[in-house]
Each structure stands twice: as C-alpha cells, then as structure tokens.
Design a binder for these strands. Structure first.
Lengths: 223, 223
DNA sequence: CACCGTTTCAAACGCTTGTTTGAATTTAAG
DNA sequence: CTTAAATTCAAACAAGCGTTTGAAACGGTG
C-alpha cells in the first residue's frame, strides 16, 4: 500500500513533485483538453497541493505549454526517428513508416497520452504548437518525404513529395481523430477485421504505391 | 440603424427569438466549442435575455444538441446531395464531389459556421453525433462510394470501396482540421499556390484515379 | 540547538459560470 | 376593457474555477 489518501489513482511516485505534476497534467490535458481539466484534478492525480502548480509553474497556461513540451521530448527520447538497413527497399520503408505512425496514432489498445496530447495540439493549436511542429512533426515528415523521393526515383518535385506525404498523413489522421464517426459509418465486423494498424498500413501503403505506379492498380487486388 | 443597444454585433433579426438563439448559438459553438461558449455570449449575440435560453431550451446542453441539428438540417436544405447529368464520366463525378467537399470544408474564404460546427462534432462527438452521421454524413459518403463503384466497374467489394472512400475523406479532413500545422510544414508560396479547393481537388482526385489505374501514375506528371 | 531559505498546506478570495426567481410586460381571447 | 396566459427582464443564487495567502513543516548549515 502506498501513500495516497483517497481512492483516486496516483501518478508514478518516486519522483520529483515537479515531475509528478508534469506527468499528471499531461495525462489530464490529453484526456480532457485544457479548459476541461482543472488544476485540482491534476494535483489530486499528482498527490500534491493545489498551490504546488502555481509554485512550480506560475499559471495553468504555462503548465500546459510545459507539459506539451515534456510529452514530445519524452517521445523523441524513447522512440527516435526510424532507420533502416542499407539495402531496404523504399516500398518496405514506406510500409514500415506508415505502420509505425498508425501504431502510435491508434495504439494496439489506445494511444499513449503523449501522442494524444500532441494530436490535440495539432487540432487546436496553442503557443505550444510551433515548437512541437519543428522539433517533432517536421523531422518525421521529412523522413516520409525522403522515402517518397526514393520511391519516385527522384522524378517528383519537393512540392509533389510533400503533397503525397500529406495525403498519407491525412489518411492516418482520419482514423485517429474521426475514429468514432468512422466506426459509425463502417459495419462493425469490417471494423474488427480491418481497423488495426497493420491492415490499415497495408491499405494506405498499397494505395500510395499504386498511385505512384509501383504496384498494380487497387481495383485489381492481389491476394 | 437597428435596435441593438451595445457595440456588439447581432444575429439576423426579423426572426423568432428561438430562431435567433439557435442561430447565435450555432455560430458561437462553431467558433469556440461547447465549454468555451457562454450562454451570456449567445444571448448578447441574439439580443435576448439570459433567461430566454432556459425558457426555450431548458439547458445549455439541449441548446447545443438542437443547434447541431439545426446546422445540418439547414445545410441539407440549402445544398442537396449532388447529382450529375446522365452521361457524366465517373472520373468527372469524383472530381466534382471532392471539389465540392473541399469547398465546404475549407471555404473560399472560411467554412460556414454550420460546417465548422459539424466538423467539431466529428472530432469530439457528443449525443448529437449519431443523428448527424445518419442524416448528413452517411448519405454523402454513400454517394462517394457509388462513384467509386462506377469507377472500378463494379470490380471492388463494398468494403474496399468504403476504404478508398475513407482515404479520400481523410485527405480533405487533414487540410481542414490540421490546416494550421500543414501551414507550418509547407513553404508559404506553396500554400498560396496549391492550398485552395480547386488545386487540392485535382491532386486528391488524381491520386485516387492513379491508384485505381484510371490514369497514368503520379510520378509521371501530365501537364 | 538556532537559523534561514525552500517547500507544503488548508483556507480563502474574487470571478465567471449555468441556472433560477419573481415581478414586469406583452399578447391574445372573451 | 378585463383577464389570464405567455414571454421578457434584472437580479440573485450556488457551484466551480484559477489563483493567492500566510502560516506550518522541512532541510541543510553554522
């Protein structure tokens, strides 16, 4: 039995109060957004007094900014940019990249709070967004564009590569951010069979390869 | 000069107070979301007393549900499902459909408050979502799937058609919901040239046609 | 121990929120 | 006009919020 008093769950203890607040805040903001998260909730989760957040961070808004930064820093540290063995085919890299992105965005169970917080920031940008884009999103997006460059044998312009890259991101994005609506539009058994990172990655990759002429067209399915 | 008292703008008068509240609420909810919109703001915009919203709708949550319904009903009435002349090629229908969707989602200037409210509901579903999906989204999505069915000469299964349909929606969706981040990732001049409904519809349509083998691959651009 | 800067805490403050109230005003029918 | 229902209004209410306060508890140093 640990040291918490009430029935409420508590964030990983054995840590600095500042770190506990940052972690608790990240989880709460990821779950409920900035406005719907109360400092009292965060402090309960972190097992600290309400005044602690003002002591360490000054104000709620600053805490939010810091927790977004904390989220993508932690994420970058734990999961560095993907690399591949020298001989890997571009198509294989693409499938790997997309599968990876979908795993992060959908999770085999549920996305990590770090990813959910970052995606919330993408949907509703605040002051924390610019840094998130430069330090986390752009590097990943650049990797994707480089794969596409290889795939098209350097025949496409950077602008075209970016456009195709966005098309790929858009598809992943939909399944994350509009997942509930997708679940209403698609029959349940189809969801169960197809709606997992692996199957979706196969589809999105195939769609892209076919569009680039690196695979037979989609309407002629290969099994 | 009209009848408003303060400097605040007012929703189209010459209407039922109930209608004025519904319209004002829709605009405010679309702009700021449920939690960040205050009943007082709505009532100021509608030129009614704060008590009126409770008199007509009981509670804020009910007003929200009603205003989402109001939004998609109005939208369906003003812009019925698209239809095409008999001989129209499927590829032409697809371009028309995608262009139409992008115009609604991005707007030549800015999307209407009705669309913004609906897309907010897609991102963060509430009780109003199910009806929105069944009455508005599903009919449109079905039209898209039918076009794709024509395009593939009936060779694709319904599940495949839906998957491709979602891929198309996902791309449009990204430009709407993550527009700010896209704007940070892409060079400004590229945004200016390409980031409008017409150009994006061309790209998304071409991407799809190429993937289905109904057009030369994307990496071999046709000008 | 005595001292002092740092950290924690319960309590309260001031403000905004959704909602209610009870009286005033308008509307429509007899 | 009279009357009663429907509608509008200014004011208040209770609850929740972020933030502040001032004292208590802690921790290292001499």
């Amino acid at each position: 039995m640990s040291t918490e008093k009430s029935g409420k769950a508590v964030v990983d203890s054995q840590e600095d109060p500042r770190g506990r607040i940052l972690s608790a805040a990240g989880r709460e903001f990821a779950e409920k957004g900035f406005e719907n998260t109360t400092i009292r909730d965060i402090c309960t989760l972190a097992s600290v007094n309400v005044a602690a957040v003002n002591y360490y961070f000054g104000e709620k808004h600053r805490l939010y900014i810091e927790s977004v930064r904390h989220a993508h820093e932690e994420r970058s540290r734990q999961f560095p940019l993907p690399v591949w063995a020298d001989g890997t085919l571009p198509a294989e890299k693409l499938r790997g990249f997309v599968g990876n992105m979908l795993e992060r965005m959908l999770g085999f169970d549920k996305p990590s709070w770090q990813v959910r917080l970052m995606l919330r920031e993408v949907l509703h940008p605040t002051d924390a967004c610019r840094e998130l884009v430069e330090d986390y999103i752009r590097p990943h997006f650049t990797v994707l564009c480089n794969i596409l460059d290889e795939l098209t044998d350097g025949k496409a312009t950077p602008a075209e590569l970016r456009r195709i890259g966005l098309s790929i991101c858009g598809q992943c994005f939909l399944y994350h951010s509009a997942g509930d609506v997708v679940g209403m539009l698609i029959p349940p058994n189809e969801i169960k069979e197809m709606h997992n990172p692996v199957e979706l990655a196969n589809h999105i990759t195939a769609y892209c390869l076919a569009a680039l002429g690196k695979r037979v067209p989609l309407s002629v399915e290969v099994s």
